[in-house]
Design a protein around this nucleic acid. Sequence first.
DNA 1: CTGAAAGCGCTTACAG
DNA 2: CTGAAAGCGCTTACAG
Lengths: 342, 342
Amino acid sequence: MKKLIIKDIARIAGVSKSTISKVINDYGDISNKTKQRIKKIIEKYNYHPLDSAQILGKRKSDIIAFVTSRITAHFTAGVLWAIENRARELGEYTHNIVPYSTFYDRKIATDLFKKLLYGKKIAALIALAMDPAHDIILQYKKAKIPVVLIENKMKNAHCVNIDNYKGGFLATKHLIERGRKKIGLICGNPFKTKYGFDYTAVQRRAGFINALKHHGRKFDKKYQEISLGYSVEDGVNIFNKFFFQKKLKLDAIFCAAGDMCALGIMQGAKKYGMKIPDDLALVGYDDQFYTAYLFPPLTTIRQPFDKLGTSVFNITLDAIQGVIKDFKHIEIEPELIIRKST
Amino acid sequence: MKKLIIKDIARIAGVSKSTISKVINDYGDISNKTKQRIKKIIEKYNYHPLDSAQILGKRKSDIIAFVTSRITAHFTAGVLWAIENRARELGEYTHNIVPYSTFYDRKIATDLFKKLLYGKKIAALIALAMDPAHDIILQYKKAKIPVVLIENKMKNAHCVNIDNYKGGFLATKHLIERGRKKIGLICGNPFKTKYGFDYTAVQRRAGFINALKHHGRKFDKKYQEISLGYSVEDGVNIFNKFFFQKKLKLDAIFCAAGDMCALGIMQGAKKYGMKIPDDLALVGYDDQFYTAYLFPPLTTIRQPFDKLGTSVFNITLDAIQGVIKDFKHIEIEPELIIRKST
DNA sequence: CTGAAAGCGCTTACAG
DNA sequence: CTGAAAGCGCTTACAG
């Protein structure tokens, strides 16, 4: 059984290829009778138009590319799932949202952005925690392909963030209100380097510093450590740095570098007999599912994936359809989840 | 700046489109000089062939589809990442492995399998924990598109599994050797229903039962509970069922339904003052990263993602290239990770 | 080693 | 409301 093509279906239905094409694409100017008849034939013969031929014919594709360093990372996976679900809900672009990993490699990312633009004619680009060159963003703009950035903020692109500043502020305020005096901060790299920097770290740190100020306290650099790996191991190392190298007497830590890193702090505390929250209050970031089941359960900042995904997908659709004039910049509210660690 | 097409590059280089095409595809019969010269021009002008035109021209695509219920689920994400990395290592099909979620919906899955076959001309299909109809597998066979199944076993397809029987056996044997007398089993649905069944549950359960037999014990149905959600909540409920409804005096549980469910058992034990492992030994399944950091750290069965990913990708490549004659059935060894919960 | 021409399977103005 | 024909941007026998 050879694969059927549009010509075959046309012959079977006794009409022209044009007519079949119009039915496939649901164009208006076909009599309802013909349309229904042909739809049945398509169904019966299990005909599927070859999408590369469609793309070539239409001079554009329906593909929305979703680019990030690692599509299977926790936060990313949550966002992607939310976007896919939103797409499915709306019945638009289901199975046409194609995820790409760049393996944390700038060169791969740059090449990919170009390939998607010139070699795929994608309908839109969604990029999570990526830092594309301005030049590339401009090429997309010229080609009229919308770019939606998550966890970053740039000109000539739509940007959706979970308000990281607010997350930092909320966490810190909470620790202050719990009566904590010496609060350590752990965050990703907030400084610009040639390899890029972590936009969320900048924001969360600013929230931390401003919450202190707001309560009449000063930020002391000594109380800050940077985690590049966001890992449990980083947490353990930083615990040692705080308490044994620097010999600080912290009574709280805000781990803006995420729950995994906070888990490392818990390991350290456990090992040296420090009680959480009595001796040390701890706030994480992300609300990874297992944090609710730790002993003690971890207070943390929840990032509302669903809202984020919905917002991103809505903007992407609007941008593709040209409904939006200006570039949108959206901040989504994070949520403080209070548990027993504070 | 309009997008450049092959004609433009041909004009710029002063050669024919055929020649450009041959350079792009690295066909042999081009003088090295010309080849190098044209490569430079392609680079300089940032030319990217439109892949849908290539697919149409070549009458086949380079896309390997990766289909599963939810590409962002824990196990899936691990496997996908391993496959992507293997592809990248080999420099083959990078960014051409396209993941699709079927949202746990059989109809969506069936439609997708057909669309990929007829509408995409994919090079191969990898499906994880999917249960496609035999009929569909046959359609792929006829079209000579290789199908590689992970976590399932069917005729006319290559199958790669992590030996779930062995995982069940190892876990149970370990508990017996720790001197446990009354061992409960929690697993996914091992029974065939019209919605399909969980192949891994069947295997792990068989391993459990046989390990008992092997040590002169009998399997008692009373000691078995089924988790359909693999969730913490399921674990909590089953804990109550075992100890309060059935009033069993278990001294061990093998939670073949995964670490999350085992986490639920730990919650239950914590709540009612049962000490792990003293009162109750516990073995999970999956070795999700956080299990090492629980109190106590969880003994569990590790599923070697990397080996699995590598094996799957190698088979897929071989099958595409037609190097394999028969359908391969591979079992990968799981690993018992002993921690403090047993 | 290189090029002219036909073909891949669709879509889309345009004419009727 | 329907169809003939040109076009999308590639590849590929084939001829030279």
